[in-house]
């Protein structure tokens, strides 16, 4: 089944706060948890990174790119992370 994405997962979404943001494409305020649209572009996040390994519970994992395998979490944004690499699927 195809994964469903929200605005929070979109590169075109500029967060204003924890609940809403501005879509850079449509120039309007959208809800963070709203369903993504046709302009969706995936935002680099740990959960989309091939170095991410799930860990204890839904919201904790590890970063396999680092020798120390530090804790990380799926929704950590990775646009500035040198280790980020897209998962192949």
């Amino acid at each position: 089944m195809e994964q469903e994405f929200t605005h929070l997962d979109c590169r075109n979404y500029a967060p204003v706060d924890v609940a809403k943001g501005i879509c850079h494409v449509k120039k309007e305020i959208v809800l963070a948890d709203g369903e993504s649209c046709e302009s969706f572009e995936k935002l680099p996040k740990c959960k989309f990174c091939k170095n991410y390994a799930p860990g204890e519970g839904e919201y904790i994992g590890t970063c396999e790119a680092s020798k120390t395998r530090p804790m990380t979490y799926p929704d950590l944004i990775g646009v500035t992370c040198d280790f980020f690499a897209w998962q192949e699927n």
Binding site: D17, V18, A19, A32, G57, Y59, Y73, D75
Partner: peptide
């Protein structure tokens, strides 16, 4: 702008700030 209570996927912390639920465990 004070987030004094939880709503949706937002959790209120320290009585004022909202944080995304998915960030809270980390």
């Amino acid at each position: 702008g004070n987030v004094t209570g939880n709503f949706g996927n937002v959790i209120s912390i320290a009585g004022k700030f909202g944080i995304r639920r998915e960030e809270m465990p980390a």
